[in-house]
């Protein structure tokens, strides 16, 4: 069976959920081989094996990470040439997409980004994407080279399957051209203790309607174990960090449940949440466009509705 390369997304060996999803998808297409760049392989090995990685190609040199995506693209191109994989799967993060874009040009291969489903199809790979702010679903295939697919988080339910995770250190040296860009400083963000926006099963977002006070939104989110998001209006006002922005120029989320609080539902916001399974809104204005999308809506003041809901949810858990 042909190999399928999966670029591992990890922080110091702590493997992110998207990698388990990619390994699960890879098993539909062939035999998963993880590609692990950076430090922390020992910590990562167990979870790579648990989700079915038969092999792990790894490169330890910190140089590769310091120089961003180009060395990773060169490494994958080298592996594509050596192993002739059936496909290469990367996470559809900004960095993953950059690696994929360079790899596509290097290997003259078709690239599909933001896939929400990937299946094997007559000898190739068939993908599904959601376009135009979620108003259309398109099916696509790669017609040239090795299919390179950037897959969105939450596109598969991780399924365990024992793999050998036999590791092989790859003989790889980045080219000089790969060193043109360099990370000179990296300030870690403070952890919020909440789930990550794009991976969360539930997302609760606040908008201009919070007037800058996100405490009720956060309390409600915590009662549900949810991630907290924000509209651009709230981000532009400096009330919440940009990395929490949901929408066209922020994160595209597709959780089981999305709750919009004090958000009107502009097209650019919809672009980031329209494909959520269940949508709920709390808004004072019964004509807010967000209500066109909801499974359940409360016309009311979020400062009274949310605390009451939070209390009721907490009470039901006791």
């Amino acid at each position: 069976m042909a190999e399928v390369l999966v670029l591992v997304d990890h922080v110091e060996g702590k493997v992110r959920k998207t990698t388990a999803e990619l390994l699960t998808i890879a098993r539909r297409l062939g035999e998963p081989s993880a590609v692990f760049v950076g430090a922390g392989f020992d910590a990562a090995k167990e979870s790579l094996a648990r989700f079915g990685a038969e092999k792990v190609y790894r490169v330890e040199s910190p140089e590769v990470l310091e120089h961003l995506v180009v060395p990773q693209a060169e490494l994958l191109a080298q592996l594509v040439a050596e192993k002739s994989p059936a496909a290469v799967l990367v996470p559809a993060s900004p960095e993953g997409k950059e690696v994929a874009a360079r790899l596509a040009v290097k290997t003259e291969s078709g690239l599909i980004t933001d896939a929400v489903d990937v299946q094997a199809a007559d000898g190739g790979v068939a993908t599904t994407q959601s376009v135009f702010a979620g108003s259309y679903t398109v099916a696509a295939t790669v017609t040239k080279g090795t299919p390179i697919i950037a897959v969105k988080p939450n596109s598969a339910t991780p399924e365990e399957a024992a793999g050998a995770a036999a590791d092989e250190v790859v003989d790889f040296t980045p080219s000089d051209a790969a060193k043109g860009a360099r990370i000179t400083e990296s300030k870690p963000k403070q952890a919020t203790g909440r789930p990550e926006l794009t991976e969360a099963a539930i997302v609760v977002s606040g908008g201009r309607g919070t007037g800058g006070d996100f405490s009720k939104v956060e309390d409600f989110a915590d009662s549900l174990g949810a991630a907290v998001g924000a509209s651009r209006a709230a981000v532009d006002a400096g009330w919440y960090p940009h990395t929490s922005q949901v929408g066209q120029t922020g994160k595209q989320v597709s959780p089981q449940l999305y709750v919009a609080c004090g958000i009107s539902g502009a097209i650019q916001h919809r672009a980031g949440m329209q494909t959520s399974k269940t949508i709920v809104a709390v808004n004072k204005d019964n004509e807010a466009p967000i209500f066109e999308l909801v499974d359940f809506g409360v016309v009311g003041d979020l400062f009274t509705v949310l605390p009451q809901a939070t209390e009721a949810i907490k009470a039901s858990k006791d």
Partner: peptide, 13 residues
């Protein structure tokens, strides 16, 4: 569109 309720003191519940 699903159910829309007006908050009449019980919207949160």
């Amino acid at each position: 569109q699903g159910e829309i309720v007006n908050d009449e003191g019980d919207g949160g519940s």
